Structure formats: C-alpha cells, structure tokens
Amino acid sequence: MFPTRRMRRVRSRTIQPLLCETTISKNDLVAPLFVDETASAPVPISSMPGQFRYPVSGIAAVVQKFRDRGIRAVLLFGIPAHKDEGATAAYDPQGVVQQAVRNIKAACPDMLVITDVCACEYTSHGHCGIVGDSRCSGPDLLNDESLLLMNKIATSHAEAGADIVAPSCMLDGMVGSIRAALDTAGYEEVLILSYSTKFSSALYGPFREAAESGFSFGDRTTYQMNPANGREAFLESQLDADEGADILMVKPAGPYLDVLADVATLGLPVAAYQVSGEYSMIKAAAERGWIKEKETVLETLTCIKRAGADLIITYFAYDVCGWLS
C-alpha cells in the first residue's frame, strides 16, 4: 500500500510560503545596545563580533540608524565611569543611561526605549544590588535593601523618558516594589518588562565583558534561576504577573523554549532574550564556515517565536531587519 496521506504535498516550494505557520517580522525585534560613559568612539566587543560599546554623545545617531532599518525598540545597558558598593551612578540623573535616554528621545521620539534596571554594571563588586552578610551563605545579595535601590534606578529612568523599565535583578518582589515607586512618582504609564524567569546561565559570558559586569566573589545562583528547575521557573513568572508586570521575559531564549511556552500560557505578552552566548556561538561557527549565519539566525528566531515569544531581544536585530527587507 502506498500512502494516501502524503505530507509532502503541502511542502512544495510554491505552497510553502502560503502555509507557513510562524514568521518573523521587524516588529518582533528589540535591539540591545551598550552605552559607555568613558568612550569617545565606538569600542568593539571582542567576544561579540559586530557589537560595540557606544559613547553617550553618539548613541542617538546609532539609534536613528537602527530606526531607519525598521527597528522600533532598543534595550539600553550602561557602563558608568564610576562604580561603588551602593551603585550610586545607576540612579544619578546625569548617569550614562539617563543621558542616553534623553539624547535618543530628543533625536528619535518614536523609538521605544527600554532600560535595564539592575546594579551589576554599577557596583564595585559586580553583584546586582546591595551586598551584606547572609545568615545562610555569608556575603550575598540582600533582597529588600536592593529593592529600594531598584526603585531609585527605575524612577530615574522614567524621569529621563524611558518608555519601559526592565528589572533584571531577580529579586523577590521587584515588580510590585517598582510599580509602587513609579506610580507614586507619577509614572503610571511606564511599563514594566520583568526579567521574570532569568536563569543562572553560562551563556552570559560575553555580556559580562561587554558591560563590565563580572562579579568579584561568589556567583549569582542564590538569586538567578537554576537551569534544572522548570516548575520553579514558571512560578517566578507567575509571581511577577501577579505583582503587575506588563510583559514577562525568559532569559536565555534558545535552551529554554519549554519554559517560554509555559510562561506564554499566563496570558501576558512575553519577551525572550537571545543572549550574548547564543549570539557569539552562532558568529564563531559561521566565521569558521561550519554553519550558515543567516539561515541559522532566522531558524533560531523563528523557533523562539513559535514557542510563544511576542518580542525577541537579539543582537542580530539590525542584520535581520536587513535580511527581511
């Protein structure tokens, strides 16, 4: 017996585009950008070929170039000139991110500006908030003291003109605390994109070079997620949804599509972050001729969207917009 149900009939090259279930568009993409307070010209990031740390004075022109390419949203990370234990530069009205937001909004007012709300780039020890002695594990991140710091950072970003603040510190209660602080300060319209399920991943290595955010002791496993725990990962996002998050996020993206699909069932918009390690692995393999870069990038992004992502934060955003054109 030959088959009557022939799946190959729907895979002819002429009909495939009509039956494609998942497609990537420019509106799916968010471009992460690094702004360096000490830079006077773009600084190449050696572990992330094609990526740069941009000076504050030049960031508006860079964002305009991205806007002309079709990108509608950027996510900003700041590298300050000064670091200390209290991360005071993170909430300075004249801080690197605050200046960058104002410059971008003046030059490109229709660009959606998202700011990373964390302290790892601003603390002298590289951890994501205020560190003190924990009864369980010695020096560690203090949750509630760090929440007060995040409130200051988020409010300062909103004052500068950010459309969305994105807390990435994985503190308990961070969404509720920041929401209350923003509302009290009169920024009820500013959205919170929560890094609601952020894993303690080995794939962040190139980012730590880019943002100068490596930690000087210990690790981040006491506040970021264990990659082995799926049910706990879902609960983390559920808690942030209950606290009022407008958008949830799973980070990294590619290795955690099962978690992404689960989080999407909560009913809120979901972002997925294709992180620096994912970017660098594709770049390195493509440079060696082991894979085709364009095809691999589009495949990975399509799979991320198929799993449930409404937004994809990716360092390939600029290239992808060119390919889609």
Score class of each variant (00 low, 15 high):
N229K: 09
Q51V: 14
K26W: 01
V165E: 07
E209N: 03
M225T: 03
D172M: 06
V74W: 02
V43A: 09
R13D: 10
Q94H: 15
T88G: 11
T155L: 12
I104E: 07
Y256I: 07
G132M: 08
A185H: 11
G322A: 10
L148H: 15
P17F: 02
Y195Q: 02
V74H: 02
C118I: 06
V320Q: 05
R306I: 03
A233I: 03
I164D: 09
G230E: 13
Y195I: 04
A233S: 11
F34T: 07
G173M: 08
P206E: 06
G205A: 15
S280C: 06
R9M: 10
D219I: 07
Q99K: 15
P93Q: 11
A284G: 04
L257M: 15
G86W: 08
V165P: 12
V63T: 08
A253L: 07
L257F: 12
E37Y: 06
L235C: 09
I130S: 00
Q16N: 13
A261R: 15
A81R: 15
A253G: 04
G70E: 02
A81K: 15
S134K: 01
Y223P: 00
A307P: 03
M150N: 00
L248F: 12
E85I: 08
S57K: 12
G161W: 05
F207Q: 00
T115A: 06
H127Y: 08
G173W: 09
P55L: 11
A210T: 05
S146M: 05
I164C: 08
V263D: 04
T265S: 10
E209V: 04
V320N: 06
D110K: 05
V56W: 02
G126W: 03
G205C: 09
V43F: 03
D68F: 13
T314H: 11
W323Y: 14
L76T: 06
I192Y: 04
E145V: 01
M7T: 13
L260M: 13
F34L: 10
A284I: 08
Y315F: 15
P17L: 04
M249R: 07
P109R: 11
A202C: 09
I153N: 09
Q64T: 09
R220F: 05
D262A: 14
V56F: 02
A160M: 08
V56I: 15
T14P: 02
D116K: 05
A272E: 04
M111L: 11
L268Q: 00
L248N: 02
R288W: 11
C128W: 00
A100M: 08
L141S: 01
T4I: 14
C128D: 06
L33G: 03
M225N: 01
D110Y: 05
I130Y: 00
I291M: 10
G244M: 12
V62T: 13
D240G: 01
C118F: 02
L141N: 00
P44L: 06
